[in-house]
């Protein structure tokens, strides 16, 4: 027993040390900066953030954007994963490669591509106007629409793959059993496959949601003035205005809000048996 504990500790030590030095310590520094100005404790940065509505509005916008993008990703990703689960293993591997292909291209390049596609003189607007559908070019680039499109494109593969894993985990025999007991294919899906795979979808959704909260490149390149997210605002305070205390308050607020969301998610799902494994393989 003791040997097993020592082993566990030894195995965990490198990762823990790395996380402590590179993650916990800096995060602690940021948290300190929000309430301590180097000599004494102060509530000034928090007061300033509260007095100016900017940070609060942008934080709200960030969470709304993250929720919308996650919803779009789930609605598009789950059916795609379901379709892939029905393929022969060989074809499924091919499909997985196709899904993973965009990961080989940097986010920057993928985002720049949307500039070419959505611009006023871009491919989409050129096509629309040559078909005679629009007179004036439509302003798509530098709008929230462009930001959503860019974010969904980047995050969709992650959602598809987490959904796929959990759908594949569902015993095919259970579906057969349901069918043999008289369930229609639709009933078999909604009563068997969906409840057993929903936790995986939810995990994919949570990962997607949290990644959204920290998005920086996409809103910078594709967004207009009213589509910047909290990461952009933090960057602005660090690099332009040099108000690191305000940046620290915003970062801490983001951290707290993220934890709050996770807590709510946990509270909603902890009593439900389909979420017992947290979407990880049974």
């Amino acid at each position: 027993m003791r040997i097993r504990w020592t082993k566990t500790l030894l195995l965990l030590a490198p990762a823990t040390a790395l996380a402590a030095i590179l993650f916990v310590y800096p995060v602690f520094g940021v948290l300190t900066l929000t309430v301590h100005d180097g000599t004494s404790f102060t509530a000034e940065p928090v007061r300033q953030i509260y007095a100016s509505q900017l940070a609060i509005i942008v934080l709200q916008r960030t969470f709304v954007t993250a929720a919308t993008v996650t919803l779009i990703c789930l609605v598009m990703g789950y059916p795609m994963a379901y379709f892939m689960a029905g393929l022969t293993p060989r074809r499924r591997v091919m499909a997985t490669y196709l899904i993973l292909l965009p990961f080989w291209i940097s986010i920057l390049i993928r985002t720049y591509t949307w500039i070419i596609l959505l611009g006023r003189e871009g491919i989409l607007n050129k096509t629309l106007s040559s078909l005679g559908l629009t007179g004036e070019p439509i302003q798509l680039l530098y709008t929230p629409v462009a930001v959503h499109v860019g974010m969904v494109q980047i995050l969709l593969p992650i959602v598809v793959l987490t959904c796929l894993t959990s759908i594949l985990d569902v015993e095919r025999d259970l579906v057969k059993a349901a069918r043999s007991l008289g369930a229609t294919p639709r009933q078999a899906f909604w009563k068997v496959v969906f409840p057993l795979s929903v936790s995986g979808a939810a995990t994919g959704g949570i990962i997607c949601f949290i990644l959204c909260l920290g998005f920086y490149v996409t809103p910078t390149l594709l967004g207009g003035r009213t589509s910047i997210l909290i990461a952009n605002l933090i960057d602005l305070q660090v690099h332009k205005t040099l108000k690191w205390d305000l940046a620290a308050v915003m970062a801490s607020a983001l951290l707290l809000a993220t934890f709050a969301c996770l807590l709510i998610y946990w509270g909603l799902t902890r009593k439900r048996s389909e979420f017992a494994t947290g979407g990880l393989a049974r």
């Binding site: 611009g119 003189e121 680039l141 910078t220 207009g224």
Partner: peptide, 20 residues
């Protein structure tokens, strides 16, 4: 009338050339 506010020198050139 200003859809985009540039942040660096390369960007304003690009906006003008691309017809944005």
């Amino acid at each position: 009338h200003i859809p985009v506010w540039w942040t660096n020198g390369a960007q304003h050139v690009q906006l003008l050339i691309d017809g944005e």
